[in-house]
Amino acid sequence: MNPAVTTENLSKRFGKVEALRGISFCVPEAELFGLIGADGAGKTTLFRILATLILPDAGNASLLGLDTVKSYRAIRTRIGYMPGRFSLYQDLSVEENLNFFATVFGTTVKENYELIRDIYVQLEPFRSRRAGQLSGGMKQKLALCCALVHRPELLLLDEPTTGVDAVSRQEFWQMLGRLKQQGITILVSTPYMDEASLCDRVAFLQEGRVLAIDTPTGITTLFRKPLFAVRSRDKHRLITKLRTYEHAASVFAFGDSVHYTDLRQSPEPHELKAWLKTEGFDDAEAEPVKPGIEDTFMALMESGESPEENS
């Protein structure tokens, strides 16, 4: 299959800040590809280069076989871009926005209605409401509609669900799934780890570098240290105490438990429990767990470099 997106060694600096330091990856057609990274990891810069809005300092990128610098015109008609910040016309109504973006792409809403129908039916009751007065979730749905109205082959979605409630987030991802089935390649960035597991493949970004690229389950195999979920009533004190334990590698709060990794290759959970008892945690529970994406991401962030090189 032809790759929908290829980047080679993309670099970009803004003054003293190196936003991207040699990003290379490849996304095949009809894949739902997630970019995971903390704020400032370079996700938005990467999207802006791919959307042909800014030029890279070094390296190159091609979308649908077209170079982002040389063939930016051709690219623009074939991709849909949704910036991280809501950037539709707040003072135009839902309908006016949609018609406007359809026309500038030389098409009509009617022509591609079937593609956006699922999303549009939810917007329909607010047809004549101004975009600025929609709720966060509705705004994102409208933005997605506008990005889809010209039937793009590739969608670039920069943090589409940030600031959106849990139900709307779920709906949004269901829509992405349906769009993928129609053969649209989707590149999406998100700060939410639960969303990362919904992607076909994810790339971890940190400080302008790619830390790892794999499937959500594949990426957890990069996590090699023994992981325990530790529970106790006083979670806060537990974290502080665990960090002083001589064998502790990392300690993070994870939902209602604490995820703990040990420096040793095969530590015993009862040993840990015994130590905790001596420290006054009578109710402490410790059990080995399988690492999730978030654990992996945290571990990779911690080491700051690719784990393959590390081990």
Partner: peptide, 11 residues
């Protein structure tokens, strides 16, 4: 307000 980005990616 950022709408220029949305305009700029259009043809």
């Amino acid at each position: 307000i950022g709408t220029i980005d949305q305009i700029n990616v259009t043809p």
